[in-house]
Structure formats: C-alpha cells, structure tokens
Computed example of a mutant assay.
Amino acid sequence: MITAYVRDAAGLHAQALATGEAVPPGTVWLDLLYPDETERLTVSNLLSVDLPTQDDINEIETSSRLYTEGDVAFMTTPVIVRSASGPLERGLLTFVLAPDMLVTIRHTEPLWFAIFAARALRQAELVCNPLEAFLGLLEAVVDRAADVLERVTADLDRLSHRVFADHEDRTVEPLVGRDGGVVQRKQVVDRQHVRRRPPTTVSMRAVINAVGRAGDLTQKVRDSLAGLERLVAFATTVAGPRMNKDQKSRLKTIGRDVHSLVEHAAFQAMQTNFLLDATLGVINIQQTNIIKIFSVASVAFLPPTLVASIYGMNFEHMPELDWTWGYPLALGLMVLAALGPLWYFRKRGWL
C-alpha cells in the first residue's frame, strides 16, 4: 500500500496510490506499508534508486542500514510497535531521504506513526518539505521510546515497593501539648504486637514474571535507541548540509534526547537486574524460613522421643513403671523436654 502526502494550495492531504499509478505532483512524503515487489519497483523507478527489500532491511550490519546512493540517503532503525496480540515488540522503519521527497518503508503499523500522520494533515507546516517530515517522524519515535521507558520505570517502582515494603501494621497516635490540644501526630509501631504479613512465594513469582517483562521491554527500547543514535549521527553528516539552522538545531536536540534516553535505559536495565536479584533473595529467605521451621520442630521433638524411648524399653527392673504417677510423670517430662529447646531458641532470637 502506497500513500502519498501531497502539498498544494489547500494544504496537505493524503492520497492512496494504486499499483502503477503515477505519483502526484507536489508529493513530499511517500509511505510504503507492506510493499510488494511491484510497488517497490514503481517507487524505485521514480527515484532512480534501488529501494531495499524486506530481507535487506532485516540485515543487522550498519553498512546495510545506513548508506547513500548518490544524493539519496537510506536509513533503517528499530522502533517499538504494539503487536496484534497486545505486547510491545520491535519493528523496523526505513527512511529514504531524497532531495525532493521522503519515502518511508515499514512492515509494521505503530500507533505513533498514525498519530503523526493525522497531525500532519491538520498542521500542514509539519510536512512542508521532506526534511521537516523526516525530523517530525524522528521526534515521534523518540517520544514513543520515552513514553515506554516512563511506563517501565513506573512498573519497576511499583514492583520494588512490593518486594521491599514494610509488612507491619502501623497505628497513628496523637501527641498532646501542654494546653491539652493535639499538636501533631506520629506513627507508633508496637514491635511486640506487630502483625507481619510477608509476601508469599506465589506473589514473588508474579513479581519475577513482571520484572522479566520489564527487562525484556527495556532491552527492546535500548535496541531502538541504539539504532536511533547511529541514525542521528549518520543523518547529521549526510543531510546536515541541506538543513537550515532551525532544522540542524532540531536534529541536535533529537540527538541529545536519544543520548539521555540511552543512559536512562542503561540505568533502568541495572535496576531491573537488581530487583530480580532482590526478589530471588526474598524467595530464598522464605524457603530458608520454611526449612528452619522443620529443623526447629525436629530438634524440639528429639528430647520427648528420647524420654518415650527410655520408658518404652522392656527391662524388668524399671521402678517408674510401678509408680501410680509414673505415666503423668513421663508425659510431663516429654512436654518439658519439648518446651525447653523452644524457649532456648526464642531466647537466642532464632525464632
């Protein structure tokens, strides 16, 4: 599908072109969405250059993504798009910047692209020439990457609170002044009667899944920003001489924004790894506590077992067997033998 954005006296309007149809005069931007071979050849003949195929676009080496043919620049960068199933994924967007026309080639349908196209139709000055259209699309890509990073940051903050939250019930107690009035309030925590609600292993598994999704999305954004950073540097060298002062300033601002987002994404990746390690540590602590409970129970029942074993022997001369209170005495010894280790463990702070 080929869409031509044409400028005339009435402003800017979009026109869908049929296969083989000539490009209208005044076209400043051609958008190729899922182009077939016929459409690719049609635009190639129009620009007198060989447009890249989908296989060419998918190549990862820089020389295949950023290059020039005569006065036409070819630039491909990864972008973040929402797939049909819902999650955000990585797509590719190719800019073909000619002196009198901008061509975009894409096999994805990102929402931000449609939003920019709709804005351009309302505000024709956004696409008054190919360079303006190119810069506007780059700004839209950077804004989308920033929005995704902000969303991931908010998700990580929420997950961090779930992992490191203080699971204690707090009560608010008023402070009374000398005149009997309440002057301020403070939080009071009764450490002896506090009710702790530690996160469960199931909830921590959910946190790990969420952290993994955040880390995967961060990596996709970092990939997109790395491609944008290389593209901006290439565009500054190739298209810079054709830009006016304002356009050069916009491209420089885009470069600074991309660089700052790259640093933020790197910090966010470190935060993701830290949060993942912390979550695994919480799970290990929970599992250790479970093992500790079984260990304490085993130690607590060993002395009663010893008492029961002694009085379960079949020796003939065991005077306690003939005592009237022998049975209650044995039971009492077993209870005391169980409570003794528990009291000792609690005194040492092991429970």
Rank of each mutant, 00 (worst) to 15 (best):
N273M: 07
A133G: 14
L251Q: 02
A165T: 05
T38P: 06
Q271N: 13
A300N: 07
P87N: 00
E109Y: 01
D246V: 13
D257N: 13
G240E: 03
I60W: 06
L276Y: 10
P99N: 04
R191N: 01
Y5W: 06
E320C: 06
N314A: 12
F74T: 01
T3L: 12
H193Y: 07
N273T: 13
S295I: 12
V307M: 08
E69V: 11
F74D: 01
T288D: 13
L331H: 08
G91E: 07
A338K: 11
Q123F: 11
T200I: 01
N209M: 05
V103P: 02
V148K: 09
T76G: 06
A206K: 08
E168W: 03
Q184S: 14
D179A: 08
S298G: 15
N314D: 13
I283Q: 09
S83V: 00
R205T: 06
P78M: 05
M243Q: 06
S309L: 14
V163Q: 02
E21Q: 15
A114S: 13
R151M: 14
T94S: 15
R170Q: 08
S249C: 00
R213T: 09
R40P: 03
A235E: 02
L231M: 14
A239Y: 03
Y5Q: 02
E150H: 14
K245N: 10
D190M: 05
G70H: 03
L121V: 11
R82A: 07
S83Q: 05
W350R: 12
A154P: 01
A154D: 14
A165K: 10
T218W: 04
D223E: 15
E316D: 15
A206Y: 04
L66T: 09
